[in-house]
Design a protein around this nucleic acid. Structure first.
Lengths: 150, 150
DNA sequence: ATGAGTGCAAACCGTTTGCAATCGG
DNA sequence: CCGATTGCAAACGGTTTGCACTCAT
């Protein structure tokens, strides 16, 4: 399911890019992440793998990883960009409003719907972006607890 | 279908806000728009209705309009925020990649899908955002023409 | 050895804030 | 009239760029 560091590293080199310490740190960070991270977060967490990882390098590496389709940018509410490793195939995210935990929905069941959209609008559909928000089981449990405590 | 300036203005006043020239210009601009506009674009186009419409006012008014649910922020690829009048009820957009024309899909047929997502993930689903991209009939026609011309 | 990749500092750009002047009800 | 609203200038925060140094191959 999830790619390993080796797999990512290989794909990286195969396409003619050097696998430096900073880049390795960024890949490790993304692998360990349970939700999309902002560039600043990637720098912060990445520094545990590469002491002086610079924010600029994070930006440049993310751009490269996006080009290689190894990472995808997702729209997260507040200040827009979050980055997560892309999983093979087409997926959608369900994001918890409280704790920002992300669950991926693998497989996309929108095919029929999109066909009907194409028919109704006359557009040739080339892509779509679906983001679902909700509250995860854990946060709901916590909220129930809080309300009894109040 | 689409609200008129009067309707918007009324809702605006009913909730205790003053309807100033700058605000009226912003509403007019949004009404006339065929796609989500960035704050800067709203200022630019809005100046034809209100000479010295300031960008700051655009930001503050958009924030207010969002609170009132008269406008919704949509995620547009490049630099994130676009704003469009919200239509009553839940809708999705189909955006043309070439000319940015927007068609709204009224009514949302994702109910069953979302139910199954809730079941599979344990999340209580609170909302979703779907944006579909494609190429509109007109642009496809133009492209066919271009390719014959070349 | 050498060019790709890096970090730093500074530029850049969209957004927000403080404030005195203005306008709408 | 009086407070909500405005525009300006300045602050702010995230992102990008120029440049000299370094590292992976």
């Amino acid at each position: 399911m999830t790619s390993s560091l080796d797999t990512l590293a290989r794909q990286f080199r195969e396409r003619g890019h050097k696998l430096t310490q900073p880049r390795r740190a960024i890949l490790r960070t993304l692998l360990a992440a349970s939700r999309p991270l902002s560039p600043a977060e990637i720098q912060e967490y990445g520094q545990s793998y590469c002491q002086d990882l610079g924010l600029v390098t994070v930006y440049r590496t993310l751009e490269l990883l996006e080009d290689l389709d190894l990472v995808r940018a997702v729209h997260v509410a507040q200040n827009c960009h979050g980055y997560a490793l892309s999983t093979p195939g087409h997926t959608h995210h369900v994001v918890c409003e409280r704790c920002h935990a992300v669950v991926e929905i693998v497989g996309c069941e929108l095919g029929d719907f999109l066909d009907s959209v194409a028919e109704r609008t006359g557009y040739a559909i080339t892509g779509h972006w679906l983001e679902i928000s909700g509250i995860c089981a854990e946060c709901r449990a916590n909220e129930r607890q809080d309300s009894t405590t109040l």
